[in-house]
Design a protein around this nucleic acid. Structure first.
Length: 441
RNA sequence: CGGGGCGUAGCGCAGUCUGGUAGCGCACCUGCCUUGGGCGCAGGGGGUCGCGAGUUCGAAUCCCGCCGCCCCGACCA
């Protein structure tokens, strides 16, 4: 993509409504635009990142055996009356009436609907276990939306729902999601520490939330420094192997980690030596629940067992805040000059800077590199605007693409371009005809 | 929902107290000059001053009502 033909409205100053760094940088890099409190349009740069994160989440869900569906954003109130949550959910639920004066709502979550879908599609114990998920926009009418996409009212969430015959089988489904979350966050360049959590309005028995550590996090967290030395995602896992999955879960739950709500100072001091105690702040990016028959019971989600008797299914739900992750990753990865995208989610792989746009030699060299890198499947953002070099460097650092290729008269004299790594700042001079090989070899 | 603050050009702000031609910086456009870290000079475009109703010869400014947004707290993927 040539920047001269793109839509990337960048800002030089921080908009005053933005308080935290991710919000400021997202606005400055032209990724989002606020439409109302807690509601954002995703501009091209932001949308690309959102889609990349979504795709990684999808791949890891599929790998763990979950099956993708898509449910509507608008739901009927009837199902929610059956579960008893229509009244219980309170003012956070956006209630709508259609032309026939029927009560509808913009879904804040989908336990009721998925349970009803599943109920209608299965009759036998042979039809479980199953895990269905979708990646869909949610609306929660937050009392106080803030921090940009970190706490929006409308947000993109991946929510998965497992259905099992027995409590024990349900635990395995829960564990599979637990492990897949570690894998997912690792691919996003994050360490998301699992912490025992309260079950809140979703309800249930067992629950963990996954928090990434960042100064601007909304929750205070207490944990064992040993988490830093664990293998977060490079391990191999067979999701069908109950023992090995549960072993990973055990490993990650054996170390102390708790948000302030669940913090037990006595237990903390008993289990964590003084020099390994870390207190910090965290951003919740995932939350998993096991709630047994809480929804299957009222919604009649049951199957016939091998003995011919009806069995009410055991369920869990598993959420990842996809849009929140965009902000969360920036919180965890930026410097004074701007965003530093992990390669897995960067909106473009490479930023190509033409220091002297309009100069025939520079233009020709850039055109050739752009074509060569693109042909190798790289997404290149080519800054071909007639701007002074300094402005282009600042822009490229701000938007945080992992690699920069700098082409200017200085290097062209010697037939080289400069390659800069955004994260480390390391620069190397590479012969023009070796650049493609170096970055896409 | 309690407390505080803000709404003036795309962004950041001044002007409001004390009513009198709507301004500054950045960004943008044109030309020249430049191009290796947000360049220089010159010229220029862009505004229902959040909305409505009042007071007044005259309202961004004063009065009344409304709306929106942000921050702090209680709550939350």
């Amino acid at each position: 993509m040539r920047l001269s033909r793109y839509f990337m409205p960048i800002l030089r100053d921080d908009p005053k409504e933005a308080e935290i760094v991710s919000h400021k940088l997202m606005l400055r890099a032209g990724m989002i635009r606020q439409e109302a409190a807690g509601s954002y349009s995703w501009l091209p740069m932001g949308f690309r990142v959102l889609k990349k994160i979504e795709q990684i989440v999808r791949e890891e869900q599929n790998r763990a055996g979950a099956i993708e569906v898509l449910m509507p954003t608008i739901q009927s109130a009837d199902l929610w009356r059956k579960s008893g949550r229509y009244d219980a959910y309170g003012k956070e639920m956006l209630r709508i009436k259609d032309r026939g004066d029927r009560e509808m709502l913009f879904g804040p979550t989908n336990e009721e609907m998925i349970t009803d879908i599943f109920r209608q599609g299965v009759q036998s114990y042979k039809d479980v276990p199953r895990n269905l998920y979708h990646i869909q926009w949610k609306f929660r009418d937050e009392v106080r939306p803030r921090f940009g996409v970190m706490r929006g009212r409308e947000f993109l969430m991946k929510d998965a729902y497992s259905f099992d015959l027995t409590r024990e089988a349900g635990q395995h489904s829960y564990n599979k999601m637990f492990v897949s979350y570690l894998k997912t966050f690792a691919r996003l360049g994050l360490k998301a520490v699992p912490m025992r959590a309260e079950t809140g309005p979703i309800g249930g028995d067992d629950s963990h939330e996954f928090l990434i550590l960042a100064e601007t996090g909304e929750s205070e967290v207490f944990f064992d420094k040993g988490f830093h030395d664990m293998d977060w995602g490079s391990f191999e896992i067979d999701y069908d192997n109950v023992e090995s999955v549960s072993k990973v879960v055990d490993e990650f739950t054996s170390k102390y980690a708790a948000t302030s709500e669940m913090h037990d100072a006595a237990d903390y001091e008993k289990r964590v030596p003084t020099d390994r105690r870390v207190t910090g702040r965290g951003i919740e990016v995932g939350h998993i629940f096991f709630f047994g028959t809480k929804y299957s019971e009222p919604l009649g989600c049951q199957v016939q067992g091998p003995d011919g008797k009806m069995v009410v299914l055991q369920s869990g739900s598993y959420g990842i805040g996809v849009s929140r992750l965009v902000g969360g990753i920036i919180e965890a990865s930026h410097d004074k000059d701007g965003i530093i995208w992990p390669e897995s989610v960067a909106p473009f792989d490479i930023g190509l800077i033409n220091v002297k746009s309009g100069d025939a030699e520079a233009d020709a060299a850039c055109d050739k590199l752009y074509a060569g890198l693109t042909a190798k499947g790289k997404d290149v953002l080519y800054d071909d605007r007639a701007q002074p070099g300094g402005a282009k460097f600042a822009t490229m650092d701000l938007i945080g693409l992992p690699w920069q290729v700098i082409v200017g008269p200085r290097g062209l004299k010697d037939g080289v371009a400069e390659i800069k790594n955004r994260k480390t700042g390391a620069r190397e001079s590479v012969a023009l005809d070796k650049v493609v090989e170096r970055l896409a070899g």
